[in-house]
Design a protein around this nucleic acid. Structure first.
Lengths: 106, 106
DNA sequence: CTAATGTATAACTGTTTGGTTCTATAAGCT
DNA sequence: AGCTTATAGAACCAAACAGTTATACATTAG
């Protein structure tokens, strides 16, 4: 499954959102979601991993998943092509975020 | 269908790419793609329109489709959250594009 | 060594998706 | 008015998807 399809699923986006805060074991992710079974979460994680959106490392019996933001670069590159056409006001949020990012890094 | 799913399909992304160059009638889009029928293209266009990614206007019997880049804002906003985590080198393309954009606009 | 824990895989199922052909609708042409 | 053109919608179908339960497989704990 490609990056675009991987992030098309709202549950998978929610998982990425959680992993953006901090890394989590598969089990932690399972308990973070209600109304979905462990195998279902496991399958979502596989898809995210195959798409290069998360990394996994083994720790005892646990599998620790971490965000791999590089995987989103493809998506962002595609969108970037269209920004030329954006009305100016749509840029404000982005610029704001860029500024904050710079501040945090220094 | 939401924005994320709408752009998950490669054919629909290709359509957006074509519309980014210039507006096109439904018929022009049909002939731009081989191995896909007119009704199939029509359905893709409906999905793009419902997702707010394209606009449509009627001209005689033709339906003229135009890009509605505002529709991509949702997608971009979602990705923007993750840029904080991006390694520096991933920023270079984006910055390059931003610069070019500014130049074109002035 | 055996039991328990954490997680992935297998097999199966209902729903969604993208495609098709056929038909309907609406505007222009003669 | 009747024919043609441009495009959407209906009905249908196969493949893909997301979910389930049951099972297998490591690793740690006792």
């Amino acid at each position: 499954m490609d990056t675009f399809s991987a992030v098309a699923d709202p549950r998978r986006r929610a998982m990425l959102d959680l992993l953006a805060k901090r890394e989590r074991s598969a089990g932690e992710l399972v308990s973070a979601f209600s109304g979905i079974s462990q195998p279902a979460v496991s399958k979502h994680l596989r898809i995210l991993k195959d798409a290069g959106l998360v990394d996994m490392r083994v720790h005892a019996q646990q599998r620790i998943y971490t965000l791999q933001p590089k995987g989103l670069a493809e998506l962002d590159a595609w969108i970037a092509k269209y920004k030329v056409f954006w009305p100016d006001r749509l840029d404000s949020l982005e610029r704001h975020l860029d500024k904050n990012k710079g501040a945090k890094k220094k």
